[in-house]
């Protein structure tokens, strides 16, 4: 059944060949960034694995780089950066808030029961 009260957003999503060239260039740039970050991570892990002095520094570096990679994937590959700011906020803010809270609780609780030496079961 045809309905004329629904605005067909899907048909709006289009661009010309010239615009496509610019977009493709950006996509490949993001690919090279992601690849470089991954190679850097593997290289760091390869060189410094098992060195106790670098352990914390490595961990925070890896987590930071992971968030950078995730940002590029969500914003560029998943086009969230091109959507309305309302949509961006409604997706990202509750999610990030909830996960930050969950991580804080899980890790601090785990460290606590490790410290007191409680055995499961």
């Amino acid at each position: 059944m045809e309905r004329d009260d629904i605005i067909e957003y899907s048909l709006d999503i289009s661009h010309t060949d010239e615009e496509g060239k610019v977009i493709r260039k950006r996509l490949w740039k993001v690919f090279w960034i992601l690849l470089a970050v991954t190679i850097f991570e593997v290289g760091m892990g390869f060189m410094f694995a098992g060195v106790a002095a670098y352990k914390d520094m490595l961990m925070y570096t890896f987590i930071f780089l992971t968030v950078v990679k995730a940002g590029y994937i969500v914003m560029i590959f998943m086009h969230l950066g091109d959507e309305m700011s309302y949509l961006k906020k409604i997706i990202l803010i509750p999610y990030c808030f909830f996960i930050a809270y969950l991580l804080f609780i899980a890790i601090s609780e785990a460290n606590f029961i490790f410290d007191i030496g409680w055995v499961l079961g």
Binding site: I99, L102, A110, L120
Partner: peptide
């Protein structure tokens, strides 16, 4: 997160 929990616990 549960992986992180167990990893820190053990």
């Amino acid at each position: 997160c549960s992986y992180g929990f167990m990893r820190h616990k053990f």
